[in-house]
Each structure stands twice: as structure tokens, then as C-alpha cells.
């Protein structure tokens, strides 16, 4: 059910293919666009801060949108102030973002900083907006292990989506060609991080060795086979009911029995 009156803006960034590194639409941002399309249909607005010449941005337009606003920013700029100012003036009610950019620092801080700057609430891991009534949205949040939590939050708010959100639709070539990237001139704030930090190709992480601090051979042997013989509680000679009781107690202790 598209809420056509809802003013939804999705923030998109340029992604990178995980193998080739080619510029493409970012996976999570595309999911955020998908969610936006389900909420606002054609009224969804796209916003990017960066270079309007980047062709990869058109992949978002290919999902069925006519235009995208691009706040012109040089490569090493802090985009948060510009985005924040724009969003406040645009009267956005719901701002959707991905949870982590695929190029650059990718710290996933952007939605948090925006929410802080705008002083709006932030929902992390949005998967579905169930309803919006009288300025209060009821949303589902993704938790690890496929679990979901229901939250109520007052508009306007910022929400980030991650890989649990619905998969993005294909991008069609024609609409992507025809769509408009509308550049806007805004103030630029320099990002100082790369003064002191440097990016380098990822090094493979060292595998953790199992350190055994045993002094004697017997202890080492025990440590090496500990998993197999750690030995928990073994209940023999009891009725099935007693056994079931013990299991249920453990399940309740672990809070998996709902």
C-alpha cells in the first residue's frame, strides 16, 4: 500500500562490485530504494552527494524513477552537513539509507550523524513499514537470526536498511538512460580524516591459533580433545518426563522457548 502522501527520500551512494571493483549501484542502497518505491511509488525522491557525472548512479533511476538530485561535492568532502541541510528544507518525513557504503570509509556512520544533526529518531535495520497513522509509523526492524522487532516511531525519522530488507528490483536500461541527474550547488565541508588515515588493499586477517597453555602432555591432550569430551550433564535412568523437564529448563534459561 503506497502512502502517496508520505514524503520519502532515499539516500544513495556509488557502490563497487565486490570482485571487479567496478562502480555499480550499492546493494543496500538499492534495497533502500526498493523500500522507498513500495512506500511512495513514483513520488520517491533520490538524493546523492557527490559527482553528478558518475554513470553508475543511473542504475537507481533504472528502477523506475525519473530523476535524482545530486548535491555537488568533491571526492573528499564531508557530505553530512550538506545532506542534513537539504533534508530539513525538503520537508522529508522518512529518510532511507543503506547501513554501510561500499567504497571509502564505509563506517556506516552517515545515518547516525544525520539523525543527530536533524535531531530525528533513527531506526536501524528497517525491513518494512507496516503502517503510518497520524504521524506515527509502525515499522519492523531486522534482528540477527531472522528475527523481527516491531517499533513505533514518530515522523520524521531516519532509517537505515541492511541486507534483510526486500531485494531490489532489476534496473532497466531505457529508464536509466532517460532519467535526469539534477546537480545542485551546495557548500563544501572538507573531511579531515584522510589527512591522517590511509586506505590500503585489505590484508587477509590472520587466523587465530588455538593457544594451549598446558604444562604437561596429559593437559595438552585434554585441551586438544576438550570439545569432544568436555562432558556436560548426562541424565540416565530417568523417566521421559523428567528428561523433558530438564530440557525445557535449559531452553527457558536460554530464552529460546517463546
Amino acid at each position: 500500500m503506497p502512502h502517496n502522501l508520505l514524503n520519502v527520500i532515499t539516500l544513495v551512494s556509488v557502490g563497487a562490485h565486490p570482485v571487479t571493483g567496478r562502480a555499480r549501484r550499492a546493494e543496500q542502497d538499492a534495497r533502500a530504494v526498493e523500500l522507498g518505491l513500495r512506500l511512495a511509488g513514483k513520488e520517491l525522491q533520490l538524493l546523492h552527494a557527490g559527482d553528478p557525472q558518475v554513470e553508475a548512479l543511473r542504475a537507481y533511476l533504472g528502477m523506475g524513477l525519473a530523476e535524482m538530485t545530486v548535491l555537488q561535492q568533491p571526492p573528499r568532502a564531508d557530505v553530512v552537513p550538506a545532506l542534513g541541510d537539504y533534508l530539513r528544507d525538503a520537508g522529508a518525513q522518512l529518510v532511507l539509507t543503506g547501513s554501510q557504503a561500499e567504497v571509502g570509509e564505509g563506517s556506516g556512520m552517515l545515518p547516525y550523524l544525520l539523525a543527530e544533526q536533524l535531531d530525528w529518531p533513527l531506526v536501524v535495520g528497517l525491513v518494512e513499514v507496516e503502517s503510518v497513522t497520524e504521524g506515527v509509523a509502525q515499522v519492523l526492524q531486522a534482528l540477527p537470526r531472522g528475527q523481527r522487532r516491531r517499533l513505533q516511531v514518530r515522523l520524521p525519522f531516519v532509517a537505515s536498511v541492511d541486507n534483510a530488507a526486500p531485494e531490489a528490483r532489476q534496473s532497466a536500461f531505457g529508464p536509466a538512460r532517460r532519467g535526469q541527474l539534477r546537480p545542485q550547488d551546495v557548500a563544501v565541508v572538507e573531511d579531515m580524516l584522510l589527512e591522517e588515515a590511509r586506505l590500503q588493499p585489505a590484508r587477509p586477517r590472520p587466523k587465530r591459533l588455538k593457544v594451549i597453555k598446558a604444562k604437561t602432555g596429559a593437559e595438552r591432550m585434554k585441551a586438544a580433545t576438550a570439545k569432544a569430551s568436555a562432558g556436560g550433564q548426562v541424565l540416565t535412568d530417568m523417566t521421559p518426563e523428567q528428561g523433558a523437564e530438564a530440557i525445557v529448563t535449559l531452553l527457558r534459561d536460554e530464552k529460546v522457548l517463546r
Partner: peptide
Amino acid sequence: CVGRAGGGQQDLVRR
């Protein structure tokens, strides 16, 4: 400190 950056293809080394 060294942390993963972007989509995991790069590391960010910083104070």
C-alpha cells in the same frame, strides 16, 4: 588501528 573499509576490499589504517 586497522579496520576494514568499504565493502571489505580495503583497510583503513589510522591513529
